[in-house]
Nucleic acid binder design. Structure first.
Lengths: 136, 136
DNA sequence: CAATTAACCTACTAAATCTATAGGATAAAA
DNA sequence: TTTTATCCTATAGATTTAGTAGGTTAATTG
């Protein structure tokens, strides 16, 4: 299951992607439009900024804005920034790999076997979907 | 991410599916073979029995056994029994649907849009994979 | 029958994660 | 210098996870 943080983060990014101009949008504007707690959204956008996908401006007329063209932001990136691993088990994760304690041989593991398939499939979808694709 | 419960549950079911004869297998046997805490596995197998996928026998020579031919047990069933929803968000779940508090219109929601795709894809894989398929 | 075996059942707990909230500091603009 | 809006740290309540403890029931065996 996706965390609320990820869900809200995606919604906010798509909201920003929908803007015609790349002007800063305030947190309060997004939180109202998307029914997200403002304080919670504040922390989410801040981490997205720290991770380099958003820019920000302080003071009047300030807010957050996308640093890249939405067409150039695949959902793989977004998911990894917000949720972390895309894989269902760490032992099949490309970017967040961890060995299982209980598993002496990954290649002999049934869970590994099927979760590799799920990962590849999900990854393909996220790779081929950009923020721009979700903005219609 | 899959819970350990689900991971261990799948491993145990596949272990049972691998047996040539449908004789009862003890919890301790499975827990040792798969490096799973025996007490934890005990509770997992008990719920799987209550949900109707496993049979059991008490006393000497007792244990757990699959009630169906492994070929007839798709991973959709297994996942729903152990993990619950297959979808990444409740609002796209077929068997565990829940409306989002924040979302006035699902069809206008970007998260909904992409997670439908992921669900359909994942579902297809789980549908086409049986316990028998994972037993090699 | 009695001893052994192994599943059954209830309850509990420690740790981690999630979902925020509080309250102030900093920086930009008017 | 006042206002605006992001930035930052800390914390807290709720939920979930990953088990553990300890005893009960039912089946087999001698």
């Amino acid at each position: 299951m996706l965390s609320k943080k990820t869900k809200y983060g995606i919604k906010a990014l798509v909201y920003l992607a929908k803007q015609e101009k790349r002007l800063p949008i305030q947190i309060s504007t997004i939180s109202q439009a998307e029914n997200i707690s403002q304080k919670f959204l504040e922390s989410i956008l801040l981490t997205l900024k720290k991770k380099g996908i958003l820019g920000s401006k302080k003071g009047k007329g300030g807010g957050y804005y996308l640093l890249k063209d939405p067409k150039e932001v695949p959902m793989t990136n977004v998911m990894r920034l917000l949720e972390g691993p895309i894989a269902m088990v760490p032992c099949v994760s490309l970017n967040f790999y961890e060995k299982c304690d209980d598993c002496p041989d990954e290649n002999a593991c049934a869970v590994h076997k099927i979760m590799i398939k799920v990962r590849d499939n999900t990854l393909e979808i996220f790779r081929n979907t950009s923020l721009a694709d979700l903005s219609f």
